[in-house]
Design a protein around this nucleic acid. Structure first.
Lengths: 342, 342
DNA sequence: CCGCCATGATGAATCGTTTTAACCAGAGCG
DNA sequence: CGCTCTGGTTAAAACGATTCATCATGGCGG
């Protein structure tokens, strides 16, 4: 076996031209069965493997799609990725998962790399709202679809209505009789966080409560660690001012807070009711099953990928559009006292 | 601005040859400062972006490294990935994270794709032990380093001594007075699992206990869900035969089991002591902080990547070697009753 | 003043695939 | 018999960056 066989070698061995080999590879129906057979055999014997770089060079774009997420460690994003990947795989496209880690410079680095690779397209949850690099990439003809982020202007996006989701969550807490509610999340520069805060405020207002019924507890990140830290913070608040329920901007925060609260010997939801956001698998599996706002994560990824592919294939006729899914509140024990445990 | 500027456009604008442009890009010191300046300006004005596919075609290999893991949702692997990525990034190489999800066909699919891309190298935790595709890829000149898996024969690997890790864990449980110990994990086809089981058995034997002191509880997967299911299983065992301590093959299992146990109103470690493996961040943050076997995850990724790059750059002089890290037992409350809670 | 060397710059060849226009043989038809 | 049509096949021209052998220029020592 040669170091690496090319299409020329295959052609020589099968006694045909390179064009025919290429046809066998890409449009097998156009070549006569007997020749096709001969070529396939030559490919097999030589252990020929297509050179993707050469294909890409010729095609002008690659067959990889970048998926840039804020946090690979958050199951929300890996589930989303799984949904997106399923669609891509069925079309022979591959997805590379890029973790911006909520860091603008990392995001920029990945975007530059995808641009050099002439990516087929990009799905991204941008770190901030300023997206000059994204605009520049789009201008180069690489389609970009925003995921889990509603587009402002003339671009495609797939998102979930964060306002509605948090209204559901906070209204539920109010229905349960809570009058001092905490909102945990941050930084506010993350659009999802500010949207969810806005929804929470709207729910408080709609219930006719004063706006100070809602206490904002800002965190620097949206992870388990910060959730636990929030437990510390809450403990320092005098009991009569302390929220009796909190709404967390995502499940990682909620789980961290839940763990800390239980460890302090407090009861959930008795002493503190907790609602999360995303409904990751961990939520149902927590020590006290977590009430959470379910987002159609996998479907989100699927829809985004379908839109991206549509834009990438019929670029001319394509019209940008924004898909918005509706979230759903899943009520579990972290907000509603169970019959048996009363 | 043209659709997309190439190196010839840049050359024309700067009034030099394409060779010079290439030199500015790759060996700037070889070109006179004044020309260099002129070329850089042309690049800027035209918004020129290198075409990675063309580079790769010429170079014969790409600048991406595949990292194929068993489960992206397990923080162990994302931490490992972070370590590996750090090293790669400093050399201008990019890492694509591929999730085999413990499925042979997915693994094969990713490997084929990486082969077509003429990957710079591959880091992989293989699903099974049969690795014919890997051998084939290596024969093509793509270096492969096994991670978290000791190599059998003539190949590079970076792993952690699983036998020692589980001996530490089980000896610790025996030291705490436990005489009926459960081992939770599976499937046994995963090398890590069988190694950890072997270590557990060795520890039991070393302590002079009968081999039925160890109860095997096999699971189909290593996730939180299965950990909870294990709780169910344990509950069905008559109290006098039920293990008083369990050693789980990874932290996800341990956390699931912990959650289920606490929910049943049992005390940890009073009614059941639990040890996990990996010491993921979640372990310390659990309702009852989890005793776990710490693996140098990030370092593992770093070392593997360094080896891979070494093999990829001096292919001739390179000699395969196997690095084995030693694990460390981190004792927390899930096995040792705290003073206050007695 | 001549030849040599160093430094910079050049241009053509190359990587491996896809695509397109051209070509050919044979079938069908008037 | 000549014409068109068609299914198969071919040869050659891209795609865009890199590399290497070659060449120009000017300074310097002899």
């Amino acid at each position: 076996m040669r170091e690496t066989a090319s299409v020329v070698d295959v052609a020589a061995r099968a006694g045909v031209s390179v064009g025919t080999v290429s046809n066998v590879l890409n449009r097998p129906e156009r070549v006569a069965p007997s020749t096709r057979e001969r070529v396939l055999q030559a490919i097999d014997e030589l252990g020929f493997v297509r050179n993707e770089a050469a294909r890409q060079l010729r095609a002008g774009r690659s067959r990889t799609i970048g998926l840039v997420v804020l946090d690979v460690r958050n199951p929300f994003f890996t589930d989303l990725a799984a949904g997106a990947e399923g669609v891509a795989a069925s079309l022979g496209l591959s997805v590379v998962l890029c973790n911006s880690n909520d860091d603008t410079s990392r995001e920029h680095h990945y975007l530059s790399s995808l641009r050099e690779q002439r990516a087929f397209g990009i799905l991204i949850t941008p770190v901030g709202s300023r997206t000059s690099t994204i605009d520049e990439i789009r201008r180069r003809g690489i389609p970009v679809v925003l995921v889990d982020r509603a587009a402002r202007g003339n671009e495609c996006s797939v998102s979930v209505n964060d306002r509605v989701g948090s209204e559901l969550a906070v209204s539920h807490l109010i229905d349960q009789g809570h009058r001092r509610i905490g909102f945990v999340g941050g930084p506010l520069s993350i659009t999802q966080v500010s949207q969810r805060l806005a929804g929470a405020r709207a729910a408080v207002e709609a219930a006719g409560l004063s706006s100070d019924a809602l206490t904002m507890i800002e965190t620097p990140r949206l992870d388990v660690e910060q959730g636990r830290a929030t437990g510390e913070k809450l403990a320092t608040i005098p009991a009569r001012q302390r929220p009796t329920a909190v709404f967390c901007a995502n499940d990682l925060l909620a789980l961290g807070l839940l763990q800390d609260t239980v460890r302090r010997g407090l009861s959930v939801p008795g002493d503190l009711a907790i609602v999360g956001y995303d409904d990751i698998d961990f939520a149902a599996a927590a020590t006290v099953p977590l009430t959470s706002v379910r987002q159609p994560r996998s479907q989100l990824g699927k829809a985004a990928m379908e839109m991206l592919i549509e834009e990438a294939t019929d670029g001319k006729t394509h019209r940008h559009r924004q898909i918005v899914f509706e979230p759903e509140l899943i009520v579990r024990e972290s907000t509603v006292r169970q019959a048996g445990t009363g």
